[in-house]
Design a protein around this nucleic acid. Structure first.
Lengths: 334, 334
DNA sequence: TTGAAAGCGCTAACAT
DNA sequence: ATGTTAGCGCTTTCAA
């Protein structure tokens, strides 16, 4: 018959009316409940196809009391390190029949809490990546968004937590350079408010204590390509022979600058990054960095989330230990 | 009926009861409707804070008939070119009071349509990035998910469409190499089913016709770093002096390999990419590539979506013309 | 096997 | 200014 061309989408009532059955029957057909006369089921399916009906997930979620969807809030989708974690999380969630919805706050930190709440209120749980959020705000937020797992933040068991041992990791890089004979090392600092930067500082402080003969000097930098690129003058001033960047992105930006300045790596200067983003293997020279099994991190975030949803909340933080991936950008001190 | 959960979240009814007012009043307070006695409003707010209440976005969406949320479905969140588009889309949507939710299908193409439908059924509109979906499937899907805008696909005005002129773009790169004296050019092909790869082929065919003296030879490759990295033997065999990669990621992988093989760029071989991802500026040598105003593309996707939501559907496709960004990886033919 | 009806949590007439 | 009520689109109990 004449297909409705109105603006409104078809609803279950439309299908029920058109097929001459009740809403309950349509619902049963849509959900594959077996107890429906095959002839009627056929008719319903035909009507569904004809009217291009697909059930409102919103109404379904409200009725069921769950959406089978989890939210992920990240500060910047462009950060390659998130991708690997997201990938693991996505795969694991999918395996258990859940959908992952990602919201990018674009470092827009004042609206961050609001975004998190909104996402949480349309999903069953949330994974929170908020490296810059103040601890105060975080702790205020957590009780209102459970089930929740935070990445790389401590919560005093107020929420699930999965973290990477940055302090230990950066220590490994530093010792790697020291073993290569470097005694003057520059650290290209990340954003001062970032927890991951603080952890790295702590790790370097420890190394400094162990090696009084080694100078580790901090250079204010950032977390983007251009920050690394722009750090060269400051680094040159330190006369460091080894450079540890906040992350691979910074290291690669820095490497790009060194190439322009005809500074040889690692002959003149050694450079190391952190995170082992996919590209770090393919830079020239390939980048020495810290690698963590980020896919597993994502998977772990998922299992922690799922446990909470099932009421088996285990709020003991999980710590992942990164490993050194020594490649061509580091060598003996000149 | 909904299954009762053990530790239920506070609802508007709980607040109403606890504050001794009606649900309507709570609703008014939550939505900042002015006509509420300040004293009562205070009491409601106190109760809200005490019980940690925040309204169910699901229920709200159902009642309002809109979620003020749009979905974006992408095949692979790790692709840097999407980020710039997403960023523009995100900013524009936020400006108009909408939230963007991203779902990554992880190239899992059989479940792609299902994902798209599901997302669409919990949002007000959808932006679809599905370069590999067959045209048949796409056309079948479109009528059921309107309002929708597709990226880099034609739909015969069945949906909004925003595209980048890949055929023209790749032509510009090819002519750039030809102008530099290259007469044997290898094209590192993208995934065969990708529409963007087909468009590039078309563009190159056109150049071939214009320049019978120039050989453009296709080399099966892919869209990832490792594909570019692995393409070297095949490229060497072509004896090409200029290489055009499917995209920057492939070009950078290829560049990494050339560096390992001690092939000089651009002295021995010129390399060009496509997309102008942020890193292409910082590679060594910096990468010649095609740049498009991807932020504007994202913004345009948004305005097209919004127009459709307002019923002012303009289904004329918008085409963006990319421009050459000539950098250091291309030079005169040897 | 099928349908009627209640209810998920919220908003918005409409009444008071 | 506040409350009552109907209803958004779905699922599910209960009856038939």
């Amino acid at each position: 018959m004449a297909t409705k061309r109105t603006s409104r989408e078809a609803t279950i009532s439309d299908i029920a009316a058109a097929a001459g059955v009740s809403k309950a029957t349509v619902s049963r057909v849509m959900n594959g409940v077996a107890t429906v006369n095959e002839e009627i089921a056929q008719r319903v399916r035909a009507t569904v196809a004809e009217l291009g009906y697909s059930p409102s997930a919103t109404a379904r979620s409200l009725s069921l009391g769950e959406s089978r969807t989890v939210g992920v809030v990240v500060p910047d989708l462009a950060n390659p390190m998130f991708h690997q974690v997201l990938h693991g999380l996505n795969r694991a969630a999918e395996r258990d029949g859940y959908r992952v919805l990602v919201a990018d706050t674009q470092e827009h930190s004042d609206a961050e809490s609001e975004t998190v709440l909104d996402i949480r209120n349309r999903t069953d749980a949330i994974a929170l990546f908020a490296p810059r959020m103040s601890r105060e705000k975080l702790l205020e937020l957590l009780p209102n968004i459970s089930p929740v797992v935070v990445f790389n933040r401590t919560t005093g068991k107020r929420a699930g937590a999965v973290l990477i041992d940055y302090a230990d990791g950066i220590g490994q890089v530093a010792r790697h350079l020291i073993a290569l004979g470097h005694t003057r090392i520059a650290y290209l600092q990340g954003p001062p408010q970032a927890r991951s930067n603080m952890a790295r500082q702590d790790g370097l402080d420890l190394v400094s204590e162990e090696h009084p003969d080694v100078d580790i000097v901090g250079v204010p930098c950032g977390s983007a390509f251009e920050d690394g690129y722009g750090a060269w003058p400051a680094v040159r001033e330190t006369r460091a022979t080894g450079v540890i960047a906040f992350n691979d992105v910074v290291a690669l930006g820095f490497l790009g600058r060194l190439s322009e300045e005809d500074v040889r790596v690692p002959e003149d200067i050694s450079v190391a990054g952190f995170d082992d983003i996919p590209f770090s293997r393919y830079s020239s020279p390939s980048l020495t960095t810290m690698t963590a099994r980020l896919g597993d991190v994502g998977e772990r975030i998922w299992t922690t989330l799922l446990a909470q949803m099932r009421g088996e909340a285990d709020l003991e933080p999980t710590m992942f230990a990164p490993e050194l991936a020594a490649r061509s950008s580091t060598g003996a001190a000149r």
